[in-house]
């Protein structure tokens, strides 16, 4: 998108001020955090799942929509984060909740380590390259006894803790993740790094000519998104207490992320919020139809690409000029 088009469009877009947006996020988070007062354990479990799946999708959106890095192997980081937390906690007896930052660092570190290799691949080749690594991780973990091989492992530490407390703690972790993936990403995208990411996505040569280091910008984007994805993976599996390689390193995770992001609108923060709602409504509605349900997700992806490649929120934004999380900045 050229600068000219941005400035012309921006004048039509109505976006609330950043302070108002963050205040709104804060209120929503407070309401969610207080929700256990009114809800039972089953509801909490569903909300945990919704929020962690939303976090997966939002990290994928950060990569594909803002960093221009589409990866079909993000389930690698879900698995890595979860295994990191389970293995360390089970071996040392450490409280898994304190290990969440470790899971983040481990996944981000893994992403940093593989970047020199996978950044040699572009576009679809990059997407599949990371996927191959996820396959390698799945095959490796399935073979190693100390990682529980194919049958996986259970989280020991939370067994002896107070169950109500564990459920609540898991819930608040998920709420915190949801905040990080909306307000946190909003702040990230309006920061220097965020603007550099978008500039690199839109025009690599122009970004480089403006003094942006293209490689390092992508590197930070990839490491942050993958780290948060790993953190969400650890939080997700901590809330279900059990982990196995076939489920953690399952490529269907990417199918879900992709569905949520592109239906909602890739490259917008609102899109995945909308997409997550649609995904869980559809899932509840089509429960028990097995493969038909997955086929429908695929068909929805195809239809979106043909009708409105920017997804539902992209269409709404173009038509009505509404934007809540605006990462654009107007030149004074």
């Amino acid at each position: 998108m050229t600068a000219l088009r941005i400035s012309r469009k921006a004048s039509r877009l109505r976006a609330p001020s950043p302070k108002l947006v963050l205040a709104g996020c804060g209120i929503a988070a407070l309401i969610l955090a207080a929700a256990p007062l009114a809800l039972d354990v089953g509801d909490l479990r569903l909300i945990i799942e919704i929020l962690t799946v939303f976090a997966f999708a939002q990290t994928w959106n950060l990569l594909a929509g803002y960093a221009g890095l589409m990866s079909f192997g993000q389930h690698l980081f879900i698995g890595l984060g979860a295994y990191c937390l389970f293995v360390i906690s089970n071996r040392t007896g450490a409280n898994p909740f304190y290990l969440l930052p470790v899971a983040f660092l481990f996944s981000a570190g893994a992403a940093a380590l593989i970047s020199p290799m996978v950044f040699r691949l572009r576009h679809a080749y990059f997407a599949i390259g990371v996927w191959v690594l996820a396959e390698v991780a799945r095959l490796y973990v399935s073979q190693e006894d100390w990682l529980g091989s194919t049958s996986g492992m259970a989280l020991v530490a939370t067994r002896d803790m107070d169950h109500t407390w564990v459920a609540l703690a898991n819930y608040w972790v998920a709420v915190a993740l949801g905040v990080v993936c909306t307000a946190g990403f909003y702040l990230l995208l309006t920061s220097r790094l965020g603007l550099a990411l978008v500039a690199v996505r839109d025009n690599e040569s122009a970004a480089a000519a403006s003094g942006i280091d293209v490689w390092w910008t992508r590197f930070y984007g990839f490491a942050i998104a993958s780290g948060v994805c790993g953190l969400a993976g650890a939080a997700y599996y901590m809330s279900v207490f059990h982990l196995e390689p076939g489920a953690a390193f399952d490529a269907n995770w990417v199918v879900v992320m992709l569905f949520i992001v592109i239906i909602g609108g890739v490259g917008t923060i609102e899109g995945p919020i909308l997409g997550t709602a649609i995904y869980f409504l559809l899932r509840g509605w089509l429960a028990g139809t097995g493969n038909l349900y997955l086929m429908l997700l695929g068909a929805a992806a195809v239809a979106t690409m043909l009708i409105s490649p920017k997804g539902i929120w992209g269409a709404v934004r173009r038509r009505y000029g509404i934007e809540i999380f605006s990462a654009r900045r107007l030149a004074d």
């Binding site: 997407a127 992709l258 890739v266 997955l294 086929m295 695929g298 068909a299 690409m305 490649p309």
Partner: peptide, 17 residues
């Protein structure tokens, strides 16, 4: 390239399932 890649990814999911 993103629309093309996502389109064929969608077709892959439909075919497989």
């Amino acid at each position: 390239q993103i629309p093309q890649i996502l389109l064929t990814f969608g077709i892959a999911i439909i075919l497989r399932n």
